[in-house]
């Protein structure tokens, strides 16, 4: 089976500026997160996949189809939820989705049925006969999702889907996205500047910075293999304790007043730390264990790719 997205030296120039620079990589996850600071090229990559921008060099293949050569065939397999407002104000919600479904090739009666289903599915069943222009921001987002899933898609592209949503609406939208991912063989490409959105929905992440790939990582694998951190407050002989932990292969950082941060290698378990503390007569008054979060992965990628800040 072809990978979800293959980037082969992809370069895109817009308005005389190079936005994407020699992107090369294979993304084969079912749910791919697209991360990067503002201006990193996330939306440009999505637009290039959809054929809105033509690569100046290289190519991007989606589900085995070249974006330039097989544009129409590719777009037939894609459902797209854009970041910005995209609707026809003087059309009822269900008719708007039916219209879009018909443009994707569904016969009229099927399109109407699918439009109703999609509207009920996203939770807007009661509002489907209202004009889209009268919808709230959250309802418009859900309408965009409904039009993106009404046809026979294989890849759902979501560009900042939770933008402007309140927490309950955001939670509901993310649940829907996860349901769609679980209930079918649809792949996801989710671009977001909210790391939590990506963390909750994706299993692979492409991090862009200044139009280059900063990192491609498999989130599930990263979570499994990444080192464990311990944040502790201790009382007693901290330097002795720290050197004993270093003897086990841990990395320690002391911050005074008994506060220390320890990075555990895979072979060392928490109980080993307790054991060393007991042997050295050190009290552990507070211990907080955490693994590398997506934020750490993101910040590492930003630093490794030469940036000093990881602001997004």
């Amino acid at each position: 089976m072809a990978p979800t997205i293959e980037l082969d030296g992809l370069e895109v120039q817009l308005g005389g500026r190079t936005i994407l620079r020699s992107l090369t990589g294979v993304l084969d996850g079912r749910a791919i997160g697209l991360l990067g600071p503002n201006g990193a090229g996330k939306s440009t990559l999505i637009n290039t996949i959809l054929g809105f921008h033509t690569p100046s060099e290289g190519s991007v293949r989606v589900l085995g189809l070249d974006s330039r050569r097989d544009g129409k065939a590719l777009r037939a397999l894609v459902g797209y939820m854009p970041e910005t407002d995209a609707f026809i104000a003087k059309m009822s919600g269900v008719r708007f989705v039916q219209y879009m479904a018909e443009l994707s090739g569904l016969p009229t009666d099927q399109a109407m049925e699918r439009a109703h289903e999609a509207f009920v599915y996203v939770g807007l069943g009661e509002a489907r006969y209202r004009m889209v222009g009268t919808y709230s921001l959250g309802m418009k987002q859900l309408t965009k999702l409904a039009q993106a899933i009404a046809h026979g898609l294989r890849l759902l592209i979501l560009d900042e889907p939770t933008n402007g949503l309140d927490p309950p609406a955001r939670k509901r939208l993310l649940e829907l996205i996860c349901e769609i991912r679980e209930a079918s063989d649809i792949c996801l490409l989710l671009s977001s500047h909210l790391l939590r959105d990506v963390e909750e929905t994706c299993d692979q992440v492409l991090i862009l910075r200044d139009g280059r790939i900063a990192s491609i990582c498999n989130l599930a694998e990263e979570r499994r293999t990444k080192r464990k951190f311990l944040e502790m407050e201790t009382c007693g002989a901290e330097p002795v304790f720290a050197s004993a932990l270093q003897g086990l292969g841990c990395e320690c950082a002391l911050f005074g007043n008994g506060r220390m941060k320890v990075v555990l290698p895979d072979a060392v378990e928490i109980r080993d730390v307790y054991k060393v503390a007991a042997e050295r007569g050190v009290q552990i008054r507070r211990m907080n264990q955490r693994r590398d979060s997506l934020e750490d992965i993101f910040l590492n990628a930003m630093e490794q790719s030469g940036g000093s800040n990881g602001r997004i």
């Binding site: 959809l50 054929g51 809105f52 129409k72 065939a73 777009r75 037939a76 894609v78 797209y80 854009p82 910005t84 407002d85 995209a86 609707f87 026809i88 104000a89 879009m100 443009l103 994707s104 090739g105 222009g133 965009k144 039009q147």
Partner: peptide, 13 residues
């Protein structure tokens, strides 16, 4: 006016 064009053009159209 409401940016619906990307929705048309993101289809096989």
């Amino acid at each position: 006016v409401n940016g619906a064009l990307p929705l048309f053009l993101s289809r096989p159209f």
